[in-house]
Amino acid sequence: MGEVFVVTSGKGGVGKTTTTANLGTGLASLGHKVVLVDTDIGLRNLDVVLGLENRIVYDITDVTGGHCRLRQALIRDKRLDGLHLLPAAQTKDKTAVSPEEMKTLCEELESEFDYVIIDCPAGIEQGFRNAIAGAHRAIVVTTPEVSAVRDADRIIGLLEAAELHAPRLIINRIRPRMVRHGDMMSIEDIIDILAVDLLGVVPEDEQVVISTNRGEAVVMDQRSRSGQAYRNIIQRLLGQTLPIMDLEDGSGFFGRLRRMMGLK
């Protein structure tokens, strides 16, 4: 019996799809059987982030509409045996799937996979309701900006109302230097405001752009800091307690000086 996670945020562009791709890839690389479900119908993206855009034959609406069997619509990843994608439809709209159909679909998927990770569309309309319908747990992604944190707060309220309790937060694209200079909200500031459990923090990293350009997940890049951050998040998802990584590469002169003076 697998676990069903939904990755959501309210605001667009904060990194839901990138997060979904990295969590799925990372879990599959550890030998778990994973399926990623793109529920952003009409704005399909998870396929290109994973580099699987050329393999799509059937999509999620074909499955819920009974035009094909689930197995036919699932796409196997090129590199990882355990990783699968159920793509969104590109030419339909969000009403093509109902929350009830999503629930049934998730039940079928969780009987076959260890982890089902649902990439939720931006917004709080039907696409959101579909995405959360079959989920057991929610992961909320935000960035250290007023607009993104505000939307995360709204989403947390809506998840609570839908009885998806204790969502866990990923703070994405944090810039340690700006935080240090007091020009970006810190991890503590955001947790203080949203009052949820922190699942992890991902620093802003050019390597994410480079990996995504190639249709790869940065979590497989052993040298990148964002990859390390995603690997840590996966360990926490698996139940380990890990401290939040030191986001600074504060080994230089000023890093040491700051630490010496107690100014982190």
Binding site: G182, D183, M185, I193, R258
Partner: peptide, 23 residues
């Protein structure tokens, strides 16, 4: 040396106000 003097205070205060209304 990184004291809290920057624009994040403005961000936090604006966020606090907006959330009071949202909630």
């Amino acid at each position: 040396f990184g004291r809290d003097t920057g624009s994040k205070m403005a961000a936090k205060e604006r966020l606090r106000l907006v959330l009071v209304h949202d909630r």
